[in-house]
Computed example of a mutant assay.
Amino acid sequence: MSAGRVAVAALFVVALVLFAAVEIASRREGSRVPSLGDVCGVVMRYRVGPLPVGRIAMFGFWWWLGWHFLAR
């Protein structure tokens, strides 16, 4: 395995650990940190006129994620 692949894998692990840490911090009693579900809910409600921009953005994100990690 090349050093570049190891570095990228390490960065993904660090990102997952940070997401988990924020989620755990958001679930503490009296926390002001929003959970990932709360953030997704706010994004999904975002509209510009009749166009649901937040839903389109979330769909695009999931499509990109699936394309890069599941289509190989």
Rank of each mutant, 00 (worst) to 15 (best):
M1H: 09
S2N: 07
S2A: 11
S2F: 09
S2R: 12
G4Y: 13
G4L: 06
A7L: 12
A7Q: 09
A7G: 05
V8P: 03
V8H: 12
A9W: 09
A10N: 04
A10H: 05
A10T: 04
L11Q: 03
L11T: 07
L11P: 01
F12T: 06
V13S: 15
V13A: 02
V13F: 07
V14S: 10
V14K: 06
A15H: 05
A15P: 00
A15F: 03
L16V: 08
L16K: 09
L16G: 14
V17K: 01
V17L: 15
L18V: 05
L18C: 03
L18F: 04
L18D: 13
F19G: 11
F19I: 06
F19M: 15
F19Y: 14
A20R: 01
A20V: 14
A21Q: 10
A21H: 05
A21Y: 09
E23Y: 01
I24E: 12
A25W: 13
A25M: 10
A25V: 02
S26R: 02
S26Q: 02
S26I: 06
R27S: 08
R27H: 11
R28F: 08
R28I: 12
E29G: 12
E29K: 11
E29I: 04
S31Y: 10
V33M: 03
V33W: 00
V33P: 08
V33A: 01
P34R: 04
P34N: 03
P34H: 05
S35W: 00
S35L: 02
S35M: 01
S35K: 00
L36H: 05
G37E: 13
D38Q: 15
D38R: 05
D38E: 10
V39H: 04
C40N: 07
C40A: 13
V42Y: 08
V43R: 02
V43K: 06
V43L: 08
M44A: 15
M44L: 10
R45C: 12
R45Y: 05
R45D: 15
Y46K: 12
Y46I: 03
R47M: 08
R47H: 14
V48L: 11
V48G: 01
G49V: 09
G49E: 10
G49T: 14
P50A: 04
P50G: 03
P50W: 03
L51N: 02
L51P: 04
L51E: 04
P52V: 09
V53N: 02
V53E: 12
I56H: 02
I56P: 01
A57I: 01
M58W: 09
F59A: 14
F59K: 03
G60V: 00
G60L: 03
F61P: 00
F61T: 02
W62N: 10
W62P: 01
W63G: 00
W63A: 05
W64T: 07
L65R: 07
L65Q: 14
L65C: 11
L65F: 14
L65G: 01
G66V: 00
G66E: 11
G66Y: 01
W67E: 02
W67K: 00
W67I: 00
H68R: 11
F69A: 15
F69E: 15
L70T: 03
L70E: 00
A71L: 07
R72Q: 15
R72P: 15
